[in-house]
Design a protein around this nucleic acid. Sequence first.
DNA 1: AAGCATTGTCAACGATCGACGACATAGCTA
DNA 2: TAGCTATGTCGTCGATCGTTGACAATGCTT
Lengths: 96, 96
Amino acid sequence: MFIRTPQDIGALLRESRKQAGLGQAELARRIGVSRQWVVEVERGKPRAEIGLVLRALNTLDNPLQTGMAPPSYGHVADTPAIDIDAIIDAARKPPQ
Amino acid sequence: MFIRTPQDIGALLRESRKQAGLGQAELARRIGVSRQWVVEVERGKPRAEIGLVLRALNTLDNPLQTGMAPPSYGHVADTPAIDIDAIIDAARKPPQ
DNA sequence: AAGCATTGTCAACGATCGACGACATAGCTA
DNA sequence: TAGCTATGTCGTCGATCGTTGACAATGCTT
């Protein structure tokens, strides 16, 4: 799934948070930001700080990835994290 | 490759830009930001705007991805793009 | 109905953003 | 050497950040 817009970031954050069973307040506490911040970013705020966004996704164990080859110190072990459970869930109960 | 920190963003942006054969000024023009912005983000500025960062990566045809399964309309085909060539390259000539 | 948790919204406030224009350094070529 | 490009740095400015604290609107449970 590609992340191309702040709305994508917001949707991803919200999905990840719910999947983790967290409320906005609890997530904000873990990230170290205000609850207001979580509300705004989930709404797709385009001017949110990249550092806080990355910290949020790391906190939810859902870091971003790039398809680009690593610059120089490329470890093969650094493969994309495929959430097999999520894929199975999606396949088990199809949309609608 | 995982993107977990603003430094990762900076390195990714710089690599992508050079791979595209662009200078900072030309990239800035295409994104619609100042050259100063490119300099700072490539250095790992943690408070850069997420919207501009995403626009920069899209401009360089290197959008971010997530390993998460799509929220509801989950196509199995939407798996992370694994660059097999890059993996082979990395394996063929290990770091150092 | 009452109590509780969750979410969305608002108005301050100091801090920092990104743009602009200018200047300096380094590398390359004529 | 002179000229050009690419890159890094600086100060100034209006605009916006994220925080804090408070207040509604829901939904769930008792």
